[in-house]
Design a binder for these strands. Structure first.
Lengths: 151, 151
DNA sequence: AATCACGTAACTTTGATTGTTACTTATAAT
DNA sequence: ATTATAAGTAACAATCAAAGTTACGTGATT
């Protein structure tokens, strides 16, 4: 079971954008994220629809932030990604008329629902501004680091 | 991202075993679970090492419960499966020296750890006996259902 | 001995994500 | 206008883990 790291990745991108003046191209972002420009465009397409980023074609084009960092939470970003599944384990949904399976599912679903709610509530509590603030704290503590990527 | 349903599946198996007198063969269990005997053996192998089930070879052999249902929790079963990953999303762990990534990871890890702890605590709270009790409640509410599989 | 059932290694299939190529469309600079 | 740049997107390939399958070995019962 492979871990979906799109949320982590897109936050990474947003924070990088926040540290730039001008637009960043998919090409640039892809190099920073060690992936492919098309992957970047795919991920950011959802965010653009939510008004979190803007894209411009042609010369001098690329991606820019289009939101107030203090007003956007991890939950907003998660939703913009299409609210992907949070839990790696789940119920077999075959034979739902089996009473044994119903009993098992009922017990597990309660635990799963609770955990998901906790996670989403945590996402609600963190703004992008809090992340950039944390980044600058780290930068201050290690001033020799540039904060941007080399490759 | 595919969901790991081994926990759900193995609980299903354990409850079925609890409803039987004699041993059940991998063949029988596989039919009930709509899967392959080898898959059953693979899953139950971990449980046998933990003493939750016993297996006997040869004529009249098969799988039997080897534990006190009231003393075993979902957590024990989960651990016997090798404590598979609970969360479907996670951090990109590339470029860990990037301060942006560190800030992102710190925020997410806190949320992830909390959700995992909640989930495991829920597992601790449910015994197999509670599951069988729930099954019998359902059976009583729908007495026409057999509780076992047809196939 | 013959049959039954688990033990296990090796391989195949499946399903979702991610990566890649190729091409189109829109914008800016010359 | 032409050229260069960069996103938009469809289609395809590569990857990877889980699940399924085959084949054969081991041990127990009859």
């Amino acid at each position: 079971m492979i871990r979906d790291s799109r949320l982590s990745g897109v936050l990474h991108i947003l924070l990088h954008l926040a540290e730039r003046d001008g637009p960043a191209t998919s090409e640039t972002l892809a190099r920073a994220m060690q992936t492919n420009p098309v992957v970047i465009r795919r991920i950011l397409a959802g965010l653009r629809e939510r008004g979190l980023v803007r894209s411009e074609k042609g010369h001098g084009g690329g991606w820019t932030l289009a939101c107030d960092l203090a007003a956007v939470t991890l939950r907003d970003v998660y939703d913009a990604l299409g609210a992907p599944r949070l839990l790696a384990i789940g119920n077999r949904s075959e034979a739902p008329d089996c009473l044994v399976e119903q009993a098992v599912n009922a017990a597990l679903d309660q635990a799963f629902d609770e955990a998901e709610a906790i996670l989403l509530a945590s996402f609600d509590d963190v703004t992008l501004a809090a992340l950039t603030a944390d980044f600058h704290r780290r930068l201050k503590a290690r001033p020799h680091a540039s904060g941007v990527h080399h490759g």
